[in-house]
Computed example of a mutant assay.
Amino acid sequence: MLSTLSQKGPLTKRIFLKNASKTSCRALKQRLDSGDTVNMEDESILVLASVLKDFLQNIEGGIFTASLLDKWLRILDDGKPEEKITAIRRLLDKLPKANADLLRHLFGALHNIEHHSTFNHMTSYNLAQCIAPSLLGPPNANSSHLQEDLTKMVSLVQFLLENRLQLWGEDTPPLWGGRAATPDEVTTGCLESTRMMVAVIYTNPQGQYEAKCPSSTGRRTCLSTIFEVPEEEEWP
């Protein structure tokens, strides 16, 4: 899934912002839940983006983990950029391996999309607005700090995206093959077709999902998260 989004997402204007068919999203999730083999290339890119957000929203415990969330939200409060990057690296080392690997590949895909923002209009800030709420965890109606936490998470996601190379380096492990096509390749009909690896596996025992890291030894590791886009920037 991340593979397909990484390759075709850069060519989709306002990806993660446009609504996908609820019926198609529900059908894809049911197929993934049942363990069916799914060819991601045959799926609508908007449906994949929506299902990915739903997956992130329901990772058990949160992708940043509940025990570390407060530290993640406070990480941009003080210090120089170099100090913040060092602090982020320390927190990444404290995450379960599956969480850290998923974050690395997620931001790899987002980086490919942001790299073509002049075409798709998805700048680092716009992507942060769309993705950050899903990384906070399920909405807590009793939280008096929800909006404050959401604002901090948007800033954190934007910082992670803009400093991806310093945090994770140039080379991302081969979760997917090939490269992202350019807008010129799409308009000339030269979009390259490659085989994709499914990056997430759905199960649904109690409304939660499981993520399986393709580079792992086969164990499934539960992960979880939210959504809401603050109205801070007018979309092109």
Rank of each mutant, 00 (worst) to 15 (best):
A100W: 03
E60T: 12
N112C: 10
G108E: 09
T65W: 05
C25R: 00
K80M: 13
N126Y: 06
E148Q: 10
H111F: 01
E148R: 13
R104I: 04
W72N: 11
H115C: 08
P139C: 07
L150W: 02
G137N: 07
F107L: 05
V47A: 02
E83N: 07
L69M: 14
Q30V: 08
D70F: 05
L95C: 02
A141P: 09
M122S: 06
A98F: 01
S34H: 10
D78K: 12
A109N: 04
F107P: 01
S44L: 04
G35I: 03
L28H: 03
I85M: 06
Q129Y: 07
A20L: 12
S50N: 05
D78P: 00
C25S: 11
L135Y: 05
S134M: 09
A87I: 00
L127C: 03
P96N: 13
E148D: 12
E114Y: 02
P81C: 12
L32I: 06
F119P: 02
S21F: 05
L46M: 05
V51E: 00
E41H: 11
L69V: 10
Q30R: 10
A49S: 15
E148P: 00
K29G: 12
R89C: 13
H121K: 15
I88E: 07
D149T: 04
L135C: 07
D42C: 13
S50A: 12
S34W: 04
L127M: 10
D78C: 13
N112Y: 03
S134G: 14
L28K: 06
K71Q: 15
